[in-house]
C-alpha cells in the first residue's frame, strides 16, 4: 500500500512538472547562427535567415515567437553576468556597450580663438594654472586672488598714500576707481572686437578718423566749412594772400519770381496736370463694374414692371423712399438737371 501511494505521489509530481513545462517555454533556444549580443545596449541582432513560409502563414505568431526566443537568449546571457542582490532586487553589472551609436547632433565647432590665444599659440606661451587663493602676509590668512575680499579689493583701501610728484589735491580714490573702470571697458571692447572678428564683421578702429578727402571740390568744401564754423560765421577769419573769395556754398532753395510771367506759370501748371493725368489708369474697373451692375438691375426692374402691367393691367407702385435718388453727372460741372428714378 505504502509503495503504491508513494508511486502515486511521484506520478503527481512528474505530471505537475510536465504541466509546468508546458506552461512555460524552455530557456534553451537553438539557433543555426549565434545571435550577436551587445549587453551594454541590451541589444540582440539575429543574423539567421527568416523562414518566409512560416512568416507568410502566420505573421503575428511567428514574429512574437522569434522575438521571445531572441529575448530569451539575451536574458540567458544577462544571467551569466555577475549579479548582486540588494533589498530583494537583483542587479546585474552590464559591460561597456560595443555597438557605436551615431550622435544625434553634429560635432560642435571649435570656439574661435581670441587674439591673445592666437598670439600665445604662435609664441608658444603656456597657460599656467594659478591657485584661487593667495597668502596675505598682512592679514596672516589665505585671501582670494581677485574679487571681493582680495588684496586688490577697492573697498579695503580706507587710506591711500599720495605718490611722489603727484598733485596733492587729486582724489586718489577716484583715480583708482576710474582706472579700474577703464580697464573693464578696455576688456569689454577687446571682447567685442574678438566677437566681431570671429563673425567677420568690420571692426571700427580707435577714435574718430578724419575722412580722406579725395578731390579738389571736397577739399574746398572742407576748408569752407571749417572757416564758416566760427562764432561770427567766418567773418573775421584771416585770409591767405591769394585766396579766392568763396561764395556761400551748399544748396539753397530757389523759387520762381513772385510777379513773373503769368502765362509761363499757367503753362507749367497745365503741364503738371497733364503729367498727373497720364499716370491715372484709363479705365476705373470698379466703376465700370458698378455701372454694369446698375444697368442690368435697371433693365431687370423695367422687365418686371412690364410683365406686371401686362398681367394685371394696373400700375404698380414701387416704394422709392428707401432708394436714394441719383443724378447723372454732366461734364463741366454746374448741372442742376437731375434724373430721378
Amino acid at each position: 500500500m505504502a509503495s503504491q501511494s508513494q508511486q502515486h505521489v511521484v506520478e503527481n509530481v512528474l505530471k505537475q512538472a510536465e504541466l509546468q513545462e508546458k506552461r512555460f517555454k524552455t530557456t534553451e533556444v537553438d539557433k543555426a547562427l549565434d545571435v550577436d549580443l551587445d549587453l551594454g545596449n541590451l541589444l540582440a541582432v539575429d543574423p539567421n535567415p527568416l523562414s518566409l513560409k512560416e512568416f507568410k502563414q502566420n505573421r503575428e505568431s511567428f514574429l512574437t515567437s522569434l522575438t521571445r526566443d531572441n529575448t530569451q537568449l539575451l536574458f540567458n546571457e544577462i544571467w551569466k553576468l555577475p549579479v548582486e542582490r540588494s533589498d530583494d532586487v537583483i542587479i546585474a553589472k552590464m559591460p561597456e556597450p560595443t555597438t557605436i551609436l551615431p550622435r544625434e547632433k553634429h560635432v560642435p565647432k571649435d570656439k574661435p580663438m581670441t587674439r591673445w590665444e592666437q598670439y600665445s599659440k604662435v609664441k608658444g606661451i603656456q597657460k599656467r594654472k594659478k591657485s584661487r587663493k593667495v597668502w596675505d602676509e598682512e592679514q596672516k590668512k589665505w585671501v582670494p586672488r581677485w574679487g571681493y575680499g582680495s588684496k586688490n579689493d577697492e573697498s579695503r583701501d580706507w587710506m591711500m598714500e599720495i605718490p611722489d610728484n603727484a598733485d596733492p589735491y587729486e582724489d586718489q580714490f577716484a583715480k583708482k576707481r576710474k582706472e579700474k573702470r577703464e580697464r573693464v571697458a578696455k576688456n569689454e571692447f577687446q571682447r567685442l572686437r574678438n566677437v566681431a572678428r570671429a563673425q567677420r564683421l568690420k571692426i571700427p578702429g580707435h577714435g574718430v578718423k578724419p575722412k580722406a578727402l579725395s578731390n579738389k571740390p571736397e577739399v574746398n568744401m572742407a576748408i569752407h566749412a571749417a572757416k564758416q564754423s566760427t562764432a561770427s560765421i567766418g567773418k573775421f577769419e584771416r585770409k591767405l594772400p591769394k585766396e579766392p573769395i568763396t561764395k556761400q556754398m551748399g544748396k539753397r532753395r530757389k523759387f520762381d519770381p513772385l510777379c513773373g510771367d503769368i502765362k509761363k506759370e499757367h503753362s507749367r501748371e497745365l503741364a503738371i496736370l497733364d503729367s498727373m493725368n497720364r499716370k491715372k489708369p484709363k479705365m476705373d474697373v470698379t466703376r465700370a463694374v458698378n455701372k454694369e451692375i446698375q444697368e442690368t438691375q435697371a433693365s431687370q426692374q423695367a422687365d418686371k414692371g412690364d410683365r406686371r402691367k401686362g398681367k394685371s393691367g394696373k400700375k404698380t407702385k414701387i416704394s422709392k423712399k428707401a432708394l436714394p435718388k441719383t443724378t447723372k453727372r454732366k461734364k463741366g460741372g454746374n448741372s442742376k438737371k437731375t434724373r430721378r428714378h
Partner: peptide, 14 residues
C-alpha cells in the same frame, strides 16, 4: 448717414 441722404450723383465710387 443714409437716413439723411437726399440724392447722390450716379457712379460715385467709394
Amino acid at each position: 448717414l443714409k437716413s439723411g441722404l437726399g440724392r447722390i450723383t450716379e457712379n460715385a465710387g467709394r
